[in-house]
Simulated scan of single mutants.
Amino acid sequence: MRLRQLAWRATYELLGARVRRPEWAFMNYGYAPVDPAGAPLVLDAADEVDRYCVQLYAHVLDGVEVAGADVLEVGSGRGGGASWVSRSLGPRSTTGVDFAASAVSLSRRDRTGPGLRFVQGDAQALPFADESFDVVVNVESSHCYADMEAFVAQVHRVLRPGGAFVWADLRTAADVGTTRAQLTSSGLVAVEHRDITAEVLHALRLDDARKTELVREWIPRPFQRALRPFAGLEGTRNPEGFAAGTLRYLSARLERPA
């Protein structure tokens, strides 16, 4: 697990150092309802190009009181999600933390929003005081961590009593039960568990042509083949695993007891 974590760190540092385009704000797979009901999520014109990625944040935060809250995103990547939260949902403050120094540098340079800041730090040793946040967000990042239970213990520590932890990520079908147990391992109480594989796979398919073109335009040619699986493009391992049922995409909302 430690070697895998080091490999992910090296990958994200390389991406941040070599691909510094401000237009690349998100790295998640996205979310698109298979059978939409009701009005679509209203977005600013500048966010529309990243609609599916933004919709994944909107999904995990649905039902959470963000207005006036202190929000932490763990694994904030290139900063698009934290920026959208700060600009759109009315929190008092939004903090993004990421282990990749290059990603933090990009986020500080390119992302704006009221009360928004970015900090370098480790998800398994968060650099914040106890009970600092009302909401903790973790989107498509925890599969990189060497110790999921250590991460959840840190979330419990930095959450205020009554605070919410929202999470989304992919796992093998065999690991679903273990992952759900890990999410409650430090005393957080599950409010909702969902399997959103169909919605994530739908988003990947809808956004495939755009992402394929961006890989061609933005990624240096020697790295393009390696980035295709990272981006979840058609024909690569993860979309095929979602379609076959061997890989699942999960979301959850948990609370720290008051």
Results as ranks from 00 to 15, higher is better:
G81D: 11
S93T: 15
L61F: 11
D44R: 15
P239A: 13
G90E: 08
L214H: 12
R194S: 11
R87K: 06
V158R: 04
S251D: 12
R221F: 07
E149Y: 06
L3C: 04
T246F: 00
A37H: 13
T197N: 07
Y31T: 01
L6N: 07
G90T: 09
A146W: 13
V137W: 01
H193G: 02
F151E: 01
V34C: 12
G121S: 09
P36R: 08
D122V: 10
C144R: 02
V135P: 13
V152E: 04
L204N: 13
E23C: 06
E140T: 08
V136A: 00
A258K: 09
S88W: 00
S185T: 10
R9C: 07
G245C: 14
A181C: 05
G30Q: 04
V19E: 03
P220E: 14
D110F: 15
F128Q: 08
D35L: 14
D130C: 04
R194H: 03
G77T: 06
D208T: 10
E149N: 12
Q55K: 06
L56E: 05
G96E: 02
D147W: 03
T179F: 00
R180L: 01
L250Q: 05
L170H: 12
L214M: 14
A17C: 05
A7Q: 09
G121L: 09
N238R: 12
L3I: 08
G75E: 00
L206K: 15
G79N: 11
Q5K: 11
A181P: 02
A45C: 05
A146F: 14
L247R: 06
A150C: 08
V215R: 09
S142V: 09
A32P: 00
R225M: 13
A100I: 05
Q5R: 14
V19K: 02
A231D: 05
V139G: 06
S102Y: 05
A258V: 08
A190S: 11
S86F: 03
Q5D: 11
G245S: 15
L159R: 01
A252K: 00
M27N: 10
M148L: 15
R4P: 00
D147F: 03
L247H: 08
D169H: 10
L250R: 03
V49F: 14
D169P: 12
D208Q: 12
P220L: 13
V54Y: 02
Q154N: 11
A258L: 07
V104N: 10
L3A: 15
L72Q: 07
E240Q: 15
A168H: 09
V135E: 07
G80E: 13
D44K: 11
M148H: 09
F133N: 07
L233R: 03
A181I: 02
D208P: 12
T212D: 13
P114A: 12
N138W: 00
V104S: 12
L126Q: 13
R228K: 14
R180D: 00
F230C: 06
G96A: 06
S186K: 07
A58L: 06
A244S: 15
D147M: 03
F242A: 00
H59G: 09
V166C: 10
